[in-house]
């Protein structure tokens, strides 16, 4: 069902080559934001154009693509992006994390550990971790160049002074291989530990801001913290009400207007897999409740 009016995966080969060059540079300098000439895509800036361009530059006809948004395969924007590649590249798609060769994601890292050979492509809205401390691009690039990251810790210090703890719950800044401070995109900090020493290739694309950065396999990623206020990956203190998982990131769903709530895995593939394997949570059909 490939649309013949467009080149494979929409972008022309010149553009793909330009993006691949940026990707190689990004992999060679982990955590460094490589400027690239982002193209206008047929979806709006801020809706994953960076991720889509990176995916387009990586896709081959043999690839199996998975697209998730908020961990789920069936959220509207994930559906839209998956359809785009089905239409323009005709590649096979899957919802199974283990079967995918390329996974494009917005805001989550799948629960199932990734393996060597897989590529995880993140959609990034604001690639600059220092942006809300210093609005000027010319200045933040200088700060990265000179490793002037004191200000980043001032922010964390202020959090603790005011709240008794670091009050950043997503897009939690990390330091890559002891050099660049990087924004891991708005994933919950629960996912931060999965960034480090991951066998998969992790690529980050920010279309509107024209930046690409990357984590090569098995690269060291440390979440910023203080020795006496160490980083903690947190989640809601519940089990999944559908599959009973204790260690997965949860969505909170409001079930009535009387305070009724349930918690379900945000990773829909992970949850469905567990249910199929016979695990059941509090509210599952045939479950304990």
């Amino acid at each position: 069902m490939t649309d013949q009016a467009y080149n494979f995966a929409y972008l022309d080969e010149q553009t793909k080559r330009m993006i691949r060059r940026a990707l190689l540079k990004a992999l060679a300098v982990p955590g460094y934001q490589v400027p690239f000439a982002s193209r206008e895509m047929p979806m709006p800036y801020g809706w994953g154009t960076g991720g889509v361009q990176v995916t387009a530059a990586c896709l081959t006809p043999e690839d199996v693509l998975k697209v998730i948004d908020q961990g789920a395969d069936d959220t509207t924007n994930a559906v839209s992006i998956r359809k785009f590649f089905q239409r323009t590249a005709g590649v096979a798609v899957t919802e199974a994390t283990g079967e995918a060769t390329i996974i494009q994601t917005r805001h989550r890292i799948p629960e199932q550990p990734l393996k060597a050979g897989q590529i995880l492509v993140y959609q990034v809205p604001i690639p600059e971790p220092l942006r809300f401390l210093e609005p000027r691009e010319t200045e933040t690039r200088k700060m990265h160049e000179l490793e002037e990251y004191g200000l980043m810790h001032v922010k964390l210090y202020e959090d603790i002074a005011r709240h008794g703890q670091i009050a950043t719950s997503y897009a939690y800044p990390v330091k890559v291989e002891g050099r660049y401070v990087m924004d891991p995109s708005p994933i919950p900090k629960f996912d931060n530990p999965k960034l480090s020493v991951n066998p998969a290739i992790q690529l980050f694309g920010a279309g509107r801001e024209q930046r690409i950065y990357a984590l090569p396999p098995f690269c060291n990623v440390v979440s910023l913290d203080f020795d006496d206020h160490p980083f903690r990956a947190t989640k809601a203190a519940h089990d999944c009400d559908l599959c009973g998982a204790k260690d997965s990131y949860l969505d909170e769903v409001i079930t009535d207007d009387a305070g009724g709530r349930m918690y379900v895995c945000s990773d829909t593939d992970f949850c469905a897999g567990r249910q199929a394997a016979g695990h059941a949570g509090r509210l599952a059909a045939g479950g304990k409740a």
Partner: peptide
Amino acid sequence: MAVGARNYG
């Protein structure tokens, strides 16, 4: 912090 202090206390 700019010169590497990482203990809040």
